Structures are given as C-alpha cells and as structure tokens.
Amino acid sequence: MKYVIVFLVIIANTFALEIKGNMILGEKNEVIPLKEYKRIVVYNFGAVELLYKIGAGEKIVGVANHNKKIWPEEKTKLIPLAGGVSKPSIEKILSFNPDLVIFNIMGNQSEELKKFGIPSITFVNRSLNDILKNTLVLGKITNKEKESLDLVEELTNKLNLIKNGEKIEGKALILYSDSPPTSFAKDSLPVEILEQIGLEVILPKGGKKSIVSSEYILRENPKYIIGTRGINKREEIIKSIPLIEETDAFKDGNIYLIDSTEIMRASHRVFDEIENIYKILKGDSNERS
C-alpha cells in the first residue's frame, strides 16, 4: 500500500517518462513497448546512475563519452564509450547490438534507429518529481520494479525529513555563472532544491538565465549567495559583485559553492546533496567553500 501512495504523489508530473497501457512515452513523443530490456546504450548520465542504484547496471552495454566521474565510478569507468551526447553515432550504437537506447535531451537519433528496428527514448530529469517517476519507469523496463519502488520510498522519506525539520529561512541567490553574475531559471532543479529546504530564491525578471545586477542584489539583500556550474571559487563570486560586502550574505559569511555535478546530473544522488546543503546552511557541517 505504501508504494501506491508514493506513486500517486509523483504521478502528476508531465515532463517525466510516462506509461500508457503497455507503452512508454518519451520526452520527444517516442513510443516504445513496456517490457524488459537487456542491452541498453545510455546517453544520459543521470539514467546511468539510477540504473546502477536499482541494480540494473549490468544491462548497460555502452555509455556516452564523458570526462567527469559517473557514480559508481569503479564500475562506470569500465563501460565502453558510445560517442558524444549531442551527436550520437548510429554506427557506434549499432556496434553494441542494443535492444534499447536512452538518449539525452541534447541529442537524439530516434528516427534513424527506427530503420534498424531499435527502440529509443529521451530521458530528462528536470525536477525532483521527474527523478522519482523516471526511477519507477527504469525499474519496470529492467525487471527491477521492487528495487525502484524501494528507492523512491527512500528518497521521498529523506526529502520529507528535511521538509518537516527545522526550516532555513531567508532570501537566497544561486548563480549559474559569475562573469557576469547569472541566475538559474525559476523552473530549474537548483532553484527547486533551495526551495525544498525553506529558502526564498530571488530571481530577476528576464530570460531563462538572467544577468543579476549589483543593484538588484543590494536591493534584495540575500541572506545566502550560492555559486555553482561555472564558478570554481568563493572569491570569484565576491569579485564579480560590486558592493557585495553590503549584503547580509557577505557579512554573515554565507557565501557557498555547490558541486554542479551533484545537482545537475539529476540522479538519486541529488537527494543526498539536498541533505548536505541543508546541513551546511544550518552550520552542521564543516564543508564550507
């Protein structure tokens, strides 16, 4: 019964993979049979990590080229490379003789693969809800349904503990880049993460990634300023924002860095990082950059 409750909580998401009858619908309107797949080429690293977490890692026969660590590194580093994420090679894919290809949103060769009778699907985790729902789908197509249900319950409980615990209040600014200071979009995963722990994330009006002026930062006076993605040092944030010393974030020493690999890859490990960020901002951790 507990599994049914968990599924009902996350089923409303419209961006994740979707099961309709005996078929699965992908991000780019792909439709594939709902069945077990045993030889999977994966171009989405979040999907790779989730497959290993539910015990289906041995079904991955190829993974996209990469220069960053993919959990669990001791196993993923041994997977043969299948070419670039943005321009997957049909020839390379065919060399693995896959029965399924999982693409990243950045690149897709579904139409070409249809000529060879190979099903494919585009995998995207834009939100925490996406991660949970897609985990259940991965479990169904790898004969690891129980393991996926257990993982979803574990992640949901972890998030609920944080949401029901002591709130971290105040305004927060999270930066995508420091030159110039640029914020994430409202519907991005980093913004959702900070909101989950109780913060009010400030976002200037503008496009998908908006430049944040010093005037805006001074006017909003965030309690926390957090850098990620292309920002490597705390000092880079301080140098990029004139008069940053006038903000509460600077005065209270609340300027931090977050490893973008942990929060942008959008696997189960995001939930661990939420817990880590929560502890850092509460002052319960020594991991301060």
Rank of each mutant, 00 (worst) to 15 (best):
T122L: 09
N22K: 12
V201H: 10
P181C: 12
E58T: 05
I5H: 02
F103A: 08
E49A: 06
I241Q: 08
G55A: 09
K28Y: 13
R265C: 01
Y176M: 09
T247D: 06
V152I: 15
L218I: 07
I118Q: 09
F45D: 01
S285C: 13
K251V: 09
I162P: 09
Y224D: 03
D248H: 02
L100M: 12
D259E: 12
S289T: 01
L281Q: 05
D150L: 14
E153G: 00
S289N: 05
M23Y: 14
N108R: 13
M1H: 01
E73M: 09
I19T: 07
A185H: 06
K239H: 08
E73K: 11
V270P: 01
K233S: 14
K115Y: 13
I79M: 06
G207D: 05
I211F: 12
N65C: 08
K35Q: 11
G83C: 10
L8Q: 06
L189C: 03
E262Q: 10
I277P: 03
E112Q: 15
K239S: 15
G198S: 10
H66D: 13
S260A: 11
D248Q: 12
N164K: 13
L78Y: 05
E49G: 05
G283K: 06
R126T: 08
L151K: 03
K279G: 04
K186G: 00
I10R: 02
E153W: 03
K209M: 11
N65F: 06
S183T: 15
K69R: 14
W71F: 15
F116R: 09
I105V: 15
E166K: 15
W71L: 15
N221S: 08
Y176L: 15
S95Y: 00
L113A: 13
F184G: 04
I225S: 07
G198E: 06
S120P: 03
A185K: 07
L136H: 01
A64V: 12
G55V: 07
V191P: 00
E18G: 01
N164T: 04
L34E: 04
I174G: 04
G21V: 14
E58C: 02
E153M: 10
F116D: 10
L218N: 04
V137Y: 00
I280D: 14
K167M: 03
